[in-house]
């Protein structure tokens, strides 16, 4: 009798334990998915809100998300090739990315060089720092007329605007990083009488690297911010021009798609520089 009585009891306990384990697993699963799940929920909420506002005719000429999705179908289908007269969004984005790549690379090379000079040689810093502090506050687009006047061509002007926007945070952060080289490492260098080249490559560069990458990361964001505005003004190919062109032809849905793509690419660029820095600076 007692045995039969005990059996269902232990089975129930086992069941409860099993359930508890299942609950535990579910909790872990939810925890793991949270970084994806929560933003997704927020996004769905936002889209519903937007759809609602547009259905209530409160968004002016801006269509609702469903409308945008159906309007931009051809653009997404023709992402790489949108007919004879239209290159497709991919090529527009690529053109912009190319400009940013050139301008940003220039900014990185010149910015790091100037930053190191300013960080290690006091006269350089004294001479240039106040000037750069003023120049860096000038909005990117204010440089466009000057660069157009100087270079008299649209394409290099856009690249110049990218360069001039991106260079300041690189210079300033590099200089700070170089100056922040801990006294301890400098002491090691002087006791060992390290040569200038060894000091540069084995101590100064690695020590300043994390600051440099902070500057490079801020810069890539700024460069991408500036390109859209610059391209709106200079025309030709590029995502900025595409947005402006769409506006002039009242293709608001296209603008929204382009803006989303611009945001995603900006985010990707930022991550790319972040991870590049993380892999290169293994010491942190």
């Amino acid at each position: 009798m007692t045995a039969t009585k005990e059996l269902p009891k232990s089975a129930a306990a086992e069941n409860a334990a099993f359930n508890a384990e299942k609950d535990q697993k579910l909790k872990v699963l939810i925890n793991n998915l949270a970084p994806v799940l929560y933003p997704l929920l927020a996004l769905i909420f936002f889209l519903i809100l937007w759809q609602g506002l547009s259905a209530a005719k409160m968004t002016g000429q801006v269509p609702g998300p469903l409308q945008v999705a159906s309007d931009t179908q051809p653009l997404i289908v023709g992402f790489f090739n949108n007919g004879d007269n239209d290159k497709g969004l991919f090529w527009q984005l690529l053109a912009s990315l190319q400009r940013v790549a050139i301008g940003y690379t220039l900014a990185a090379v010149i910015g790091v060089t100037l930053g190191i000079l300013m960080g290690s040689l006091k006269p350089f810093n004294l001479a240039l720092d106040p000037i750069f502090q003023v120049l860096r506050t000038i909005p990117p687009l204010a440089w466009l007329p000057i660069s157009l006047a100087a270079l008299s061509q649209a394409a290099p002007s856009a690249i110049f605007v990218i360069f001039i926007t991106a260079v300041w945070p690189i210079i300033i952060n590099t200089a700070v990083g170089v100056r922040a080289t801990p006294q301890d490492y400098q002491n090691v260098a002087s006791v060992l009488k390290l040569s200038k080249t060894t000091y540069f490559f084995k101590i100064l560069l690695p020590s300043a690297a994390s600051y440099m990458f902070t500057g490079l990361r801020i810069a890539v964001g700024l460069a991408w911010l500036a390109i859209v505005a610059a391209e709106m003004l200079i025309g030709g190919v590029g995502i900025g021009f595409f947005i402006w062109d769409s506006y002039n032809s009242s293709r608001i849905s296209d603008i929204i798609l382009a803006v989303i793509l611009v945001g995603l690419i900006g985010f990707a660029l930022d991550r790319a520089v972040y991870y590049a820095g993380k892999t290169l600076i293994a010491s942190e």
Partner: peptide, 25 residues
């Protein structure tokens, strides 16, 4: 000197920290 806080270069391995000194000296 053996510094109070060791003053090792964090981006170099133990071996490379020693080797840098040997190379320099």
């Amino acid at each position: 000197i053996v510094f109070q806080n060791y003053s090792l270069l964090p981006w170099l391995s133990a071996y490379d920290n020693v080797h840098l000194a040997v190379q320099a000296a």
